[in-house]
Design a binder for these strands. Structure first.
Lengths: 119, 119
DNA sequence: TTCCATAGTTACCAAAAAGTTAGAATTGCT
DNA sequence: AGCAATTCTAACTTTTTGGTAACTATGGAA
């Protein structure tokens, strides 16, 4: 997350990658998209992505909220309840993201199996 | 680049991100796509992406070749000449990638200016 | 003979990202 | 008093990524 002035002049790809190209962001967006109700609580997301630590999930959600892709709704209860959902901007990213997912599924053999078979 | 068995079971997003979500891969693909002839030499790419070091460019190209997104053609000359181009698989990724670029352009204000103005 | 160009590689170091573990905060329940 | 539930945060460590600068190979040209 550095050098924004340089990126301002550079390609939009750089902007996307540097902000959402981390290990978990796109996966979180996808989970929210797939959810029936459109919302998920912190622990629900965590269960869906159990290999993501609480810390990383929290960090990822904060980042997505900062960039206005995810909305965070806090209910003043004890124990706390926080619901996450996609914003309109977040929703607008989904077609592109799903397109990437489709590509990955179609080219699974070219790209993924290659690494697994190697062992 | 680890833990492929886990990823095999996981979401295709993970597969894409873990392989091409680095700082330079998508940018290289985009440059090859934009090229008139469809091919670019090492130094040509380097000039287009001058803030990418030789080492990183070399590494990135090697990775993209490994995953069959980029074709590497060596001409046995001195000084050496090596031409890079997109494979069919590489070309097939472009619509999704361009869709992401469009999204970034459309949501520039929501996402990018935010960081720049902050200073 | 020394230099040039091209396409890299290598060794070393710094920075960033991610993981682990522990614990904070709240309040009702037992 | 002690515990449970939920959503985090802090301190620390490890892993991964990226950057710099110097070096290699080749054969023709000056």
């Amino acid at each position: 997350m550095a050098d924004f002035k340089a990126e301002y002049l550079a390609c939009p790809i750089r902007q996307v990658i540097s902000r959402f190209g981390d290990k978990w962001s796109m996966l979180v967006l996808f989970m929210l998209h797939k959810s029936d109700t459109g919302t998920l609580r912190f622990n629900e997301i965590h269960k869906l992505m159990s290999d993501c630590s609480q810390k990383m999930l929290s960090q990822t959600l904060k980042n997505l909220e900062h960039y206005n892709l995810v909305h965070r709704e806090v209910y003043p209860q004890v124990p706390p309840k926080v619901e996450y959902s996609l914003t309109e901007t977040g929703k607008s990213l989904m077609p592109s993201l799903l397109s990437l997912v489709d590509w990955a599924l179609q080219h699974f053999d070219d790209v993924v199996v290659k690494d697994i078979v190697r062992e």
